[in-house]
């Protein structure tokens, strides 16, 4: 059940994101990029296998048992991907505003279609 919800969630995010980045307005594109990055982050997380009640780090003085632990690497990767994605979205927002100011339109080509 949990796997089903997660995969449907990833699919909906990715599909909406792809539809939005194909739209002609810069605002739609940036929302689309954000949705896609959510889908990607969830996907990376799911690649560590979906488990509950399993800590990702060893306890001191307890011998480690790989079967009782969650894979910590995808969680670390997701963290990095979130930070980088956030920075890139912020950077793109600035360019988007600059383009709006310079061209006077929010079309992705910088000019309105005829």
């Amino acid at each position: 059940m949990m796997e089903m919800i997660l995969s449907i969630g990833i699919g909906v995010f990715a599909a909406s994101g792809v539809w939005l980045i194909l739209r002609p307005r810069t605002y739609q594109v940036i929302i689309g990029l954000s949705l896609i990055s959510y889908a990607v982050n969830l996907f990376i997380f799911s690649m560590g296998r979906v488990r509950i009640d399993a800590p990702p780090i060893l306890q001191p003085d307890v011998p480690g048992d790989p079967a009782a632990l969650a894979d910590p690497i995808p969680q670390a990767l997701v963290l990095t991907a979130i930070v980088i994605g956030f920075a890139m979205t912020a950077l793109f927002l600035v360019v988007l505003l600059a383009a709006r100011g310079r061209t006077g339109t929010d079309h992705v080509d910088g000019r309105e279609p005829e």
Partner: peptide, 17 residues
């Protein structure tokens, strides 16, 4: 340059995904 950036940046963000 801003117009070119408007294409260059999204395509690279998508490639990063």
């Amino acid at each position: 340059r801003v117009r070119a950036g408007l294409h260059y940046i999204p395509i690279n963000l998508i490639a990063s995904s």
